[in-house]
């Protein structure tokens, strides 16, 4: 998994590439988030509006990016689809990060049987790739926003739990923790005052990287019809529709795919850049 992917150490001639990473990532991500936010206020067309007579029109002939099989404006669908994907990814990763970090810190500080039990549970959860759990959960929750959020969030829990546990253990060995214990601080205080601030950087980097993965996963779920329900636009479902009309309207397949790749690359670059900047230990989850 990408969590374990170390960043590239510095290059010489292409140093700009390295230092530019944070900036490039920030610009890419910022721009796409801005587009997503804009879609809440304005889109060129109402994304769900059908213009049957203007269906399957190529880019520029009807709207900037053309229309789909129902005559909907692809640019508008793309903007709202991006907003939907982002909101699901953010909700899922924030949920997963909060739960996972809590579990990781508790496991590291309590150690012993609880630690073993929690980490075995994390192993079990980690065995279900999000697509698999989304398939199972869709039967319970119905396929929709909630299903996708829970399935993706669930998978990130063990990632954050392992990361938080490893970092917490490292910090617990430091002298000032011993001093704090000596001063009679209880475990909860130590966790809040000393552990959290020290692992926050690593968690933040991991959140950024997991956001990229979550976007990828959400698009896959959308493609299979397991994410946000129609008629709400979704990048993955746009690609599923596009497959049917691949020969007739290839533009339907291009725009959503490129958008997904740009968002994910944006988050990855941002994560790498942050890691360099915050000087976070690299091989976090191995």
């Amino acid at each position: 998994m990408s969590a374990a992917v170390p960043s590239m150490p510095g290059t010489r001639r292409f140093a700009l590439l390295r230092h530019g990473r944070l900036l490039t990532g920030a610009i890419l991500t910022g721009a796409l988030v801005a587009v997503a936010l804009l879609s809440l206020l304005w889109t060129p067309e109402v994304p769900t509006r059908l213009r049957i007579l203007a269906k399957l029109k190529p880019p520029l002939s009807e709207g900037l990016l053309g229309t789909d099989q129902l005559g909907r404006d692809i640019l508008s669908l793309l903007m709202v689809g991006t907003a939907n994907s982002l909101s699901i990814a953010v909700a899922a990763v924030v949920l997963g990060a909060a739960t996972g970090t809590l579990i990781g810190i508790v496991a590291a500080m309590r150690r012993g049987a609880l630690d073993a039990l929690l980490m075995r549970m994390m192993d079990a959860v980690f065995a279900f790739p999000p697509i698999l759990s989304a398939m199972m959960l869709s039967a319970l929750l119905g396929s929709g926003r909630l299903n996708a959020t829970v399935a993706i969030g669930l998978f990130t829990v063990p990632v954050f739990a392992r990361l938080a546990r490893a970092d917490t253990k490292r910090i617990l060995r430091r002298d000032y923790i011993l001093a704090a214990r000596g001063a009679g601080k209880n475990a909860a205080r130590i966790a809040v005052d000393h552990v959290l601030p020290n692992i926050a950087g690593a968690i933040l980097v991991q959140v950024t990287i997991q956001l990229g993965l979550a976007i990828l996963t959400e698009s896959g779920l959308g493609f299979l019809g397991l994410s946000i329900s129609p008629p709400a636009p979704s990048l993955g479902r746009m690609l599923a529709d596009a497959q049917t009309y691949l020969t007739l309207a290839p533009w339907m397949a291009l725009a959503p795919g490129i958008t997904i790749a740009l968002i994910v690359a944006g988050f990855n670059l941002l994560g790498d850049g942050l890691r360099d900047r915050l000087d976070v230990r690299r091989d976090v989850s191995a």
């Binding site: 990828l216 790749a261 994910v264 690359a265």
Partner: peptide, 21 residues
């Protein structure tokens, strides 16, 4: 490095669609 960045960011099912196309 560029290949790696792009490859990691691209959904495999979309690559599949492009290959079919």
């Amino acid at each position: 490095s560029l290949f790696a960045q792009l490859g990691i960011a691209t959904p495999n099912f979309w690559i599949g669609l492009l290959l079919i196309l």
